Simulated scan of single mutants.
Amino acid sequence: MTSAKIVLSGGPERLSGRSPVRTMVAPEEKVKILSGAGYEHFVHNGEFLTVDGENLPVFQWSERTKIAE
């Protein structure tokens, strides 16, 4: 599996205390991150941001879903 750095933008405050730069395994156009009892969903809309000399894709928060019981 390949991994890549991405930038997360938006979302709930509980994620804002962490670095917006994340390393994800095989990010595609959508990313979901486990947070509490659900998932935060992020989508890539074609935006990129240069961070420490690297051109990284920006994933914008889109929705939250709960974990199915």
Score class of each variant (00 low, 15 high):
residue 21 V to G: 09
residue 33 I to G: 01
residue 39 Y to D: 12
residue 44 H to M: 03
residue 36 G to V: 04
residue 43 V to P: 00
residue 29 E to D: 15
residue 27 P to D: 09
residue 17 G to P: 01
residue 15 L to K: 06
residue 41 H to T: 13
residue 35 S to Y: 02
residue 2 T to N: 08
residue 17 G to V: 12
residue 34 L to I: 02
residue 29 E to S: 09
residue 33 I to D: 06
residue 31 V to T: 11
residue 22 R to I: 07
residue 9 S to N: 09
residue 45 N to G: 08
residue 28 E to W: 06
residue 30 K to E: 13
residue 39 Y to H: 15
residue 6 I to V: 15
residue 24 M to H: 09
residue 30 K to Q: 12
residue 18 R to I: 08
residue 44 H to Q: 09
residue 11 G to E: 08
residue 21 V to H: 10
residue 31 V to M: 11
residue 21 V to D: 09
residue 22 R to H: 12
residue 14 R to P: 03
residue 5 K to W: 03
residue 17 G to M: 11
residue 27 P to K: 06
residue 20 P to S: 15
residue 13 E to Y: 04
residue 7 V to G: 01
residue 7 V to C: 06
residue 14 R to G: 08
residue 17 G to E: 14
residue 17 G to D: 14
residue 20 P to G: 14
residue 31 V to Q: 04
residue 41 H to P: 05
residue 18 R to N: 12
residue 35 S to E: 09
residue 26 A to P: 02
residue 5 K to V: 01
residue 28 E to M: 12
residue 37 A to L: 05
residue 44 H to T: 01
residue 32 K to D: 07
residue 3 S to E: 12
residue 39 Y to E: 11
residue 12 P to V: 03
residue 44 H to I: 00
residue 7 V to S: 02
residue 42 F to M: 10
residue 25 V to Y: 12
residue 38 G to H: 07
residue 37 A to N: 10
residue 37 A to T: 07
residue 18 R to F: 14
residue 17 G to L: 10
residue 4 A to W: 04
residue 9 S to W: 01
residue 28 E to P: 03
residue 37 A to C: 04
residue 43 V to E: 02
residue 18 R to D: 14
residue 23 T to I: 14
residue 16 S to D: 11
residue 26 A to S: 13
